[in-house]
Design a binder for these strands. Sequence first.
DNA 1: TCTCACACCTTTGAAGTGG
DNA 2: CCACTTCAAAGGTGTGAGA
Length: 590
Amino acid sequence: MYLHEERLLCGDYPLNSQPRNYGNCPPDWKDAVLRGQSWNSGVKVGCEPELSALQVRVSLQGRELWEQFGDIGTEMLITKTGRRMFPSCRVTVTGLNPQAKYVLMMDMVSFDDDKYKWSRDRWEVSGMTEPHLPNRFFIHPDSPSLGERWMQYPVSFHKLKLTNNTLNSNGLVVLHSMHKYQPRLHIVQSPDPYNPLSGGYLRFTFPEAAFIAVTAYQNSEITKLKIDNNPFAKGFRDNGLNRKRFREKEGQSSKKLNERQLQMELKSSNGIVTYRGSRPVESDDEADVIVSSCSSGNSYGAAGSRTDDITSLPAAPNPLISAFMNWGAAAAALPCGQEGWGVLDPMTHNTHTYNTLTTRDYGSPGQHNEARHTGLSNVASPLFLPYPPLGQTHHLGSVGFRRPQAQSRKPVGPHPPHHQRGPSGPAPELSHSHTSDHQPQQQQPEPHQAEFDYPLPLPPKVSRMHLPESALRSLEMSSSPSVSGSPWSLTDMLNRIHSSEGSGINSVSPQGKLLQAQAQYERPGLELGVNRELWPPQPNPPLPDHEPEYLPLHNMMRYHQNSLIGSAGLLRDSHVDPRVPSCKAPMLDL
DNA sequence: TCTCACACCTTTGAAGTGG
DNA sequence: CCACTTCAAAGGTGTGAGA
């Protein structure tokens, strides 16, 4: 799903440079595309699940920020207790049945079969991947909700946490360090006993959001980018000059410097020394002033005194400063100031906007032709352009990640201007499940973006008591599945969710009560044979679904179970997950 | 490569206040 | 009762030392 592919298919359709759309089409769209025909969802007949007939599209929000990270090589910190992603995944969804209930969840899938290592200034392949971990889903706390609700606001997965602790049971997504992953969104229609067409299943992967999981940041540019954009890391901006630790160090060194300077001055000026009162200046304040001027020369750069001419300065003890210095002339040539960033944080801005290709020009449900084209191209483009499989890009030994839609993007150099961004302009995330975790900050609108954006109302705040306690308990059940034990399948979750719907569940408690489950249907090409053709099976196959896949729920379950048979050899019933009646509950993060 | 304690920061919600 | 402000706790950050 790259832009050039879209162009091939779309002709001259103007493309929104903002979030990409991940259109979904019924299973027959690929045939139509291969025949060079226009796909027409209106001709669908038969008893296929409802979801298959919908032109569901998903757009990743904050694409510019993702691109900035992707250009450098996104890294996501994983910790034992779990670490949020930044940027987090936020998507807009269109094309759902407003009155049907859906569960949205996200997991991480391997980007390729390699393990990486950071070598000096680039990522290099370092052997084969470790055994794949069973998938863990992060179910959006608002699940299940009506399609209407999912489409009303961007859906944020900012609460998703990554961990390397395989024993965790707190609703975290487990990843291997030094492995590359990409987020994958699942849209599951809640089974409705009165609607035989319900229960479809779609999934969308976001290759541009691929990242390498790390336990400590390797690339200082990534660190810088995160600091500049993540409001929680605000304390590290200005090269950390406003941090106490730094100030203390600076204070000590400044005193020494001050003393030395005083001695120098005493020597050179025959005893003419600046005195405050009756003694030489030694107060911290005054020392700071002195050090600021000195530190500029020493590349410490006190706040407000940073100079662009840093290339000739000695190495700074702070790695960030070092990184800063290493930019050299390229960095110095970049525009300064917030205006120079170009931007406003897309994350922030998109929070209130609905800048999807779909809604503006191509995808509204009533605009079938254009929507069809766009959707078709979005989905089908990978079929035509033999871009290297996802896992191949790194074989070139490149540092960065492949850049989808590279043609459409304004060039972002290796040292994008955001490095010089000021302290303002973080990238808050929007939580629509309840009060925003990262409250959007008021920023001036981004001119070029405004052209594409449609304003969306701010999502309502959801009370903590939105989910009745009784409903929670019904979900919770007695025992929780252990990681080592039988994992929870999607079936389990859906059964549980479905059964709980009768209890009036509209959303899971915002207190981080997360349904969590594990599934192991990682085999590619379940429904889409074309995928198999394009990506032959691999030892540990990367996810083939760069485009959305439609999976009737029962098929998915069967597939899921089949995939388990090989390893566990326990599953026989193709319709009933034998683990369901075990009364194990999905993991709840209480 | 990984873990942990730390300082710094934002977010969140309760409590207080005034109209 | 509502809107607004204040305050403290919770929790998200990267850092840096040490294993």
